[in-house]
């Protein structure tokens, strides 16, 4: 669900807008480093992938269904900078052209769903990967942890913005309880799908998984007669 107009007051929306612009600017610079001159087509196609994957519904308990946010997934697959950029572009398109999420709340939506999920998700992914043995089989576990925490973290940041600039007098405890409670559940779904998707890409094209670079054992040359 994207934040609509008028939900969070003007100054806080503007502040979040500044964070979002800074995040996108850092993403643009970093993506050029990650993808060099291939940035435009590749980031565009990955953004289209994130957009499509968000339509992929999976059933949650009680007949409701959830969908992937994709921030952590994109960051692990193509790198954090390109990841922020892709999610931000998807949100920008949804806000500008599909009227999904308010125009004045665009900064909030990009900050919460783009910057926070990627920074928290990818940060935790790296941290967990550092603690686990340097093998390909560690990657899905680290991806699970990153995605699991990224969604409730985004809910926490939303609650924070609401506490500073909410336009309705709802006690912060109630907002935090409802938001974080629901998003812990969503986070579990996100974590399962993210880990499974990363491991399926890893099985077919390990070279494409940005977050798994440097984990593959270097190839060794052996002559035909050599025995071991």
């Amino acid at each position: 669900m994207h934040i609509p107009n008028g939900f969070i007051d003007g100054p806080v929306s503007a502040g979040a807008g500044v964070i979002a612009v800074a995040g996108v600017a850092v993403g643009l610079r970093g993506a050029r480093r990650e993808l060099d001159e291939r940035t435009a087509p590749l980031a565009g196609l990955v953004a289209a992938f994130v957009f499509a994957v968000q339509m992929l519904n999976f059933p949650v308990a009680g007949g409701t269904s959830g969908h992937l946010l994709g921030g952590t997934l994109a960051a692990i697959l193509v790198g954090p900078y390109t990841g922020v950029l892709c999610v931000a572009v998807v949100l920008l398109m949804q806000g500008l052209f599909f009227a999904d999420g308010g125009l004045t709340a665009l900064g909030l939506n990009i900050t919460i769903m783009g910057v926070v999920t990627v920074v928290v998700g990818y940060g935790l992914y790296r941290l967990t990967l550092g603690l686990l043995p340097a093998r390909h089989s560690s990657v899905p576990i680290a991806a699970f942890v990153g995605a699991l925490v990224s969604v409730p973290a985004a809910a926490c940041v939303f609650t924070l913005f609401y506490a500073i600039g909410g336009t309705t007098d709802v006690s912060i405890g109630k907002v935090a309880g409802a938001m974080i409670g629901v998003h812990v559940l969503i986070g579990i779904g996100e974590a399962i799908i993210t880990a499974a998707t990363v491991s399926s890409v890893l099985a077919v094209r390990p070279d494409l998984v940005h977050g798994a670079r440097g984990l593959a054992r270097p190839l060794e040359l052996r002559s035909a007669g050599e025995t071991r």
Binding site: L42, V46, V53, L56, A196, T197, S200, V201, V204, L208
Partner: peptide, 11 residues
């Protein structure tokens, strides 16, 4: 697995 395949095809 479909999502993974979709990513590879997109990339």
């Amino acid at each position: 697995k479909s999502a993974g395949a979709l990513f590879i095809r997109s990339y």
